[in-house]
Amino acid sequence: MNAIEVRNLTKRFNSFTAVDHVDFDVKKGEIFGLLGPNGAGKSTTMRMLCTLTRPSEGTAKVAGYDIIKEDARVREHIGLVAEKLIMYNDLTAWENLRLYGKLYNLPEDKLEKRIDKLLKFVRMEKWKHKRVGTFSTGMKQKINVIRAMIHEPEILFLDEPTLGLDPQSTVEIRELVRRINIEQGTTMILTTHIMVEADMLCNRVGIIDRGKIVALDTPSNLKKLVSGTDTLTMEFEIPNLTTELLGNLKSVDFVVSVLQEDATHVKVRAKGEDSFDRLLDLIRKNNGKIKIVKNLEPTLEDVFIHLTGREIREDTKKASPRRRPPWGNENERGRR
């Protein structure tokens, strides 16, 4: 049985269509990823599934209930970890958890046990009676995650759960998400614009772009979409990298994309059976000294480019006026 069945789901804001007739199913117990650049419609899809936004057209069944007609029932079975923390800084961890327990009608004795169990789960028992405002962002996010689980939801929605976290907390939260999924069997829907995150965590990934699902499969199957083709992804280390060389690389037709990583590294995607040779020739012709060449395994990012013809990161930069800590993207690069 499916935990979520999305049918023809559409959301329009005036003339702008944020989510455009989307269909997908989420199986019980899986971690399902919605991957795409900011503004692609991930969050709007999620908010509709959480009954926070009303669809313009179409509907969905969440935990067996219709999100429009039975929204109250849907709410009983879901939890949300949003990009903005759903917590009150002036309350203690215990008070925050207790408040939501009360809103979910948990009886007093059961609630206390649940709070202790959850705090133990994230190893934060010591912080029970400390105000959330004094916590680090990583600790806050942990409490935020267990807060969403206070009523043992069948389905947990995670909207960019690692956004704005430091590298260590990011790893911890991802670990926590996986543990919850394995130990509690909670179905999870995760939105992210971070490819690695989707790759690491998700059983299946839906790639969403401009309000439409452009591909939906397991990460490995998605990557086969790229590796099955004649596209190569290579990283060159060129000590005397010039903008002129970069320009020349971009201008030839067999090169799909050029991404400068730092002063000496450049990532190139190229098409065609002899593209590797042709690339080497081109660089040498421009007096580029090649120190190291790495043939990169396709990533979900390559899949995204393959499907949409655009870099996800470039899109992210343009479409996101939101403040993001400087380490957000660095972190991803370091792990690649």
Partner: peptide
């Protein structure tokens, strides 16, 4: 604005 209202709106209340 800070996002906590979503927590209340999502609760079955």
């Amino acid at each position: 604005d800070v996002g906590t209202l979503d927590g209340m709106l999502m609760a079955p209340i």
